[in-house]
Design a protein around this nucleic acid. Sequence first.
DNA 1: CGGTATCCCGAACGATACTG
DNA 2: CAGTATCGTTCGGGATACCG
Lengths: 135, 135
Amino acid sequence: MLRRRKNKTPPLPPLCPLTTCMRLLGGAWTANIVWRLSGDPRRFSELRSDIPRISAKVLSAKLRALEENGVLTRHAVASSPPSVEYALTALGQELLPVIETIVQVGMKLQRMQDATPRAAPGAPRRPRAPAMNRT
Amino acid sequence: MLRRRKNKTPPLPPLCPLTTCMRLLGGAWTANIVWRLSGDPRRFSELRSDIPRISAKVLSAKLRALEENGVLTRHAVASSPPSVEYALTALGQELLPVIETIVQVGMKLQRMQDATPRAAPGAPRRPRAPAMNRT
DNA sequence: CGGTATCCCGAACGATACTG
DNA sequence: CAGTATCGTTCGGGATACCG
């Protein structure tokens, strides 16, 4: 118990930026959040209703991570009804083409998967948890 | 016991292409694998050395998933030294622009994160955990 | 309204050992 | 060589409750 740290944190060789970026929008939600902000800045609650099944915890965690990575900015207005606006930075804007491309390919994938029964030849794959399905 | 699955399996709205695609290259490794296959077909061991820190288990799982999704093909040669070659399908090729874009943005991210102290003007964020930085 | 704190589950990942 | 099996660990993420 508690004896981890046997092989963790080895001298990590620099791996490609690919992983850096994938870690950033790795979660199911992150790309969605960025996507929602592509238009105007939005507030916390607006984002919550934009992405119905996201929890406050995850949303705030993702927003914080994105802010730390310079993808978006947080502007808090300390008025009587507290209000916080999130907006993409220039860097965040640069993510948009990525996401658009992903959406394009995603549609192709869906089309192909739909047209190809494939029926798991030989070994029925695990149907995968219905965890995250949104956008 | 009997934890009621109270909120699981809600009426899932149609999942968007974004999530579909992100699910596919969701892990940190998957995009890397596809990337490695962008040139010539490669064998299992070659991929393992291409991506040093990946375990055989994960690699084989990812390869299987990608094969099921029609992203790559598996050609086993039952020769004396067994040999299996993985190659991208046409669909897999379509993922390459996505990955290239991601790499581009990833490099920008790395550059900005390196150069930007990001002094959170007006509201000092509480110094949160150093986010995700693994390779 | 805009979060944070706590708990807990399941998925993803890693290491090692073993098989065809 | 090309995996699979098993085990253990870490991590994302959902639920609920609570605070400024």
